[in-house]
Design a protein around this nucleic acid. Structure first.
Length: 430
DNA sequence: GGCATAAGGTACAT
DNA sequence: TCTCACCTTATGCC
């Protein structure tokens, strides 16, 4: 995940800060990163499909910290996975399943201590878990958004639009997407490390990131390896820096590498680099001001004139639902996108992967299933209908313990965003 | 000696 | 059916 070895190179410009610095400001939060950290504490329940409120409590604890510091959170969740990342996703899924099998074997053999380790490695963070957090956010008027695809470009878009003043995440990819202020290593005391893009120029000579253009930076991470490319064997960020400083064009870099015998790259690499460049620049995001799907950066006019290139771009930035047909495809013209469907995905009402079914809170789903089983096992003859039709109090009763300490009135006044107060143009493909 | 890569510990909560 | 691990240290290569 991210760019291996990049953050250590940026140590010189990492500033230790207290989040107090951001008082009265809004910070984006990578929702899946927090979910993932929280999942350690309830790995067994998550894998075995048992109800748990621990991951929600992790969020509540952290949100309370932000509230004490008078910082407005804006939680951003991942949506669907990108076509260009499919190979990494399938690999991860396979690994998770392997770990799950080991965990269950150890568990049934009575080796519960060791089983837990594998349960933690086999946890799958799902949109249904995100929905559990979303229900809490709704209850407390905390702004949130489900990105159409990755949370990273979505958060950078929010920053670009002036809706947030910094991004809390551990992912170094954000810098490649163009994040200005990255806040990492946040602890329970509100201390964190801040990395500002403006400080790149202060980096030492062996890693002069400030001297690179954005394109050169993208080339660097493609060579060293990122979420979209496998990288080149024996090339880390430092070697990649030397290469991009020497040849500014990727095609020259690849020609040189092919000439030397020391380095080599796979057939797929060239295409990975092309895809990565598109995904880093033009990935689809949702604009909460216009309530429409757009792209992180505008696709330049010169590019849109080339039909072949625009087709390729569409493949890399994520397919969307077409207006009228309701079919999911690579829609070129923004006007032909079903923005209403995507608005419902952004609000967590529709499932971000199938883009059709209703997204249901994990805990609510499990509760409904349990009630269903109880009725099947011979409760009262009409108990099923009676129980299922009742509104299920999901997060609310799960939360009851901590709830009292949160002041609802204040929450809603602090957390409301005012889109009218934000000016700026909304980029679109055409 | 600098760099890339592999391996092992820790995370989370109570 | 449906989405993320990270950091430090050790080792080995050029």
């Amino acid at each position: 995940m991210g760019i291996p070895g990049l953050l250590p190179q940026l140590k010189r410009i990492q500033k230790q800060v207290s989040l107090k610095k951001y008082m009265y400001q809004t910070l984006a939060i990578d929702g899946y990163a927090w979910l993932h950290r929280a999942s350690c504490a309830c790995a067994f329940e998550l894998v075995m499909n048992k109800p748990t409120n621990k991951y929600l409590q992790f969020f509540i604890k952290r949100l309370q910290l932000l509230k004490r510091l008078k910082i407005k959170p804006y939680i951003v969740f991942d949506g669907d996975s990108l076509f260009v990342k499919n190979h990494t996703e399938t690999r991860r899924r396979k690994k998770r399943l392997e770990n799950e099998m080991i965990a269950k074997k150890l568990w049934s053999a009575g080796n519960r201590y060791n089983a837990m380790e594998y349960f933690q490695k086999s946890v799958d963070i799902t949109p249904e878990m995100a929905k559990c957090i979303i229900d809490y956010c709704k209850l407390h008027s905390i702004p949130y958004i489900v990105a159409p695809f990755e949370a990273d470009p979505q958060m950078v878009y929010l920053e670009k639009m002036g809706l947030i003043q910094g991004i809390i995440s551990e992912d170094s990819d954000l810098l490649v997407f163009g994040c200005k202020t990255l806040i990492t290593k946040l602890n329970d005391q509100g201390k964190a490390l801040e990395i500002s893009k403006d400080d790149f120029s202060a980096l030492p000579e062996n890693f002069p990131l400030g001297e690179l253009s954005e394109q050169q930076f993208r080339n660097l991470v493609c060579l060293a390896g990122c979420d979209y490319t496998s990288g080149i064997w024996k090339v880390g960020v430092v070697t990649a820096m030397k290469i991009v400083k020497r040849y500014s064009e990727m095609k020259d870099i690849l020609i040189q590498i092919e000439r030397t015998e020391k380095l080599c790259f796979s057939k797929a690499f060239k295409q990975q680099v092309e895809f990565a460049n598109y995904a880093f620049q033009y990935q689809r995001v949702f604009c909460p001001l216009s309530n429409q799907i757009t792209t992180l950066n505008n696709i330049p006019k010169a590019v849109t004139n080339s039909h072949a290139e625009i087709i390729k771009i569409m493949k890399c930035i994520g397919s969307v639902v077409e207006r009228g047909s309701g079919v999911r495809k690579d829609v070129i013209n923004t006007k032909n996108i079903d923005h209403k469907v995507h608005e419902m995905i952004a609000k967590g009402e529709l499932h971000p992967v199938d883009m059709a079914s209703k997204l249901i809170n994990r805990e609510r789903k499990l509760k409904a299933r349990k009630l269903f089983k109880v009725s099947l096992l011979g409760g009262e003859s009409n108990s099923f209908n009676k129980k299922v039709e009742q509104p299920l109090v999901d997060t609310q009763d799960v939360l009851s313990e901590r709830e009292n300490s949160l002041d609802n009135k204040n929450a809603s006044s602090i957390y409301m965003t005012s889109p009218a107060a934000i000016s700026g143009t909304v980029p679109s493909i055409f």
